[in-house]
C-alpha cells in the first residue's frame, strides 16, 4: 500500500514540476544566443583596456607610472621617453610619453585600480571580453593593441545606456 502511495506522490511531484516547466514554453526566452546575438554589457563593465587619445590623435598618457603602482598584479610595464618635437607633431599630449606600454593579460585581474589611479583619464576599461588566444605570448598586449584608435569594436556585445534597465536584454515574463 505504501509503495502505491509513494508512486502516486512521486508522480504528482513530477507532474507539478513539469507544470512549471511547461508554463515557460509559451513565454519569451531569457537566454542570449551568444555569439549569434550580442551580449549586453553594463556601462561600468571592466573589459580590455583602452588607451585614449585627444582630439588631435595624441596619446593622453604622460607615463607617470601611477597605474603601474596601483596595479595589484603588477601587469603594467611602461618605458617613459621624452619627445622634443613641437606640440602638434608629438606622439603624446605632453613632452613626456610612454614609449612602451604593455599590459600582460595573463596577469591582469580586471580590478579597475589603474583606471581609478590615472590622473589624465588616459586609460579606461573597454568592453571587450573576448581575450582568448592560442599562445600565451599573445596575451601580452602592446600599445598597438591597446590604443583606442587601433581597437575594433566586436559585434558580439553592446553597451547598455546608463539609465537602461539591467534586464533590458530579456523580455518580461
Amino acid at each position: 500500500m505504501s509503495i502505491i502511495s509513494d508512486v502516486i506522490e512521486s508522480t504528482k511531484a513530477i507532474i507539478k514540476g513539469m507544470g512549471v516547466t511547461l508554463s515557460y514554453i509559451p513565454k519569451e526566452k531569457w537566454t542570449v544566443e551568444y555569439p549569434d546575438e550580442p551580449v549586453t554589457m553594463q556601462p561600468r563593465y571592466r573589459g580590455q583596456h583602452l588607451l585614449h587619445v585627444d582630439e588631435l590623435g595624441r596619446e593622453k598618457c604622460v607615463a607617470c607610472f601611477l597605474c603601474a603602482a596601483a596595479c595589484p598584479s603588477e601587469c603594467i610595464y611602461i618605458i617613459a621617453a621624452d619627445d622634443p618635437r613641437p606640440a602638434e607633431e608629438r606622439t603624446g599630449v605632453e613632452e613626456r610619453y610612454a614609449r612602451v606600454y604593455n599590459i600582460d593579460y595573463g596577469r591582469c585581474i580586471f580590478c579597475g585600480y589603474c583606471v581609478e589611479a590615472c590622473p589624465k583619464d588616459a586609460i579606461t576599461h573597454g568592453y571587450n571580453f573576448e581575450l582568448s588566444v592560442y599562445s600565451r605570448a599573445d596575451l601580452l598586449k602592446t600599445k598597438d593593441d591597446l590604443l583606442i584608435t587601433k581597437q575594433l569594436q566586436s559585434p558580439n556585445y553592446r553597451v547598455a545606456y546608463s539609465d537602461e534597465d539591467v534586464n533590458s536584454e530579456y523580455k518580461e515574463v
Binding site: W30, M41, Q42, P43, R44, Y45, R46, I109, F110, C111, G112, H125, V166, N167
Partner: peptide, 22 residues
C-alpha cells in the same frame, strides 16, 4: 541561475565586475 543573473547584472552595473566587484 536566472534570478542570480539579475543580481549579477545589478552588481555589474554598480561596480563593473560580476564575480569580482571590489
Amino acid at each position: 541561475f536566472r534570478e542570480r543573473e539579475k543580481i549579477m547584472n545589478l552588481i555589474e552595473a554598480c561596480s563593473g565586475g560580476r564575480l569580482t566587484p571590489s
